[in-house]
Amino acid sequence: MKVDKKLVEYLANLSRLEFDDTKLEEITAQLKGIVKYVEKLNTLDTGDVAPTAHILPLKNVFRKDEVTPSINRDKIFKSSPESDNGYFIVPRVIEE
């Protein structure tokens, strides 16, 4: 699988990051190296192996449907870059 600048640009956009050209080159080279290294996994036959998503066999962990107190929004707005009138404010978003 080809790791190139175009792919890294695509990934950067997906993850909402941006790089200047020098950084892009550097990251592409590093990603190439890392990807080459992790591809050693392909030497292992995992044909009928089940994937592990959770290491412990836990199941059915539930919460009762009960209302607990919400947080005072002013406490959150204290850490917020911009808020007004009870809202978090962001630059105008054009509706989807």
């Binding site: 699988m1 790791v3 695509y10 990603l31 996994l41 292992l44 995992t46 192996v49 994937p51 592990t52």
Partner: peptide, 26 residues
Amino acid sequence: IILGTYVLSSGYYDAYYLKAQKVRTL
């Protein structure tokens, strides 16, 4: 973040993330 986005992205998930989960089992 870039590496993690890569291994989950469309077309690469099975080759990387799913593969790694299987090796995790081993």
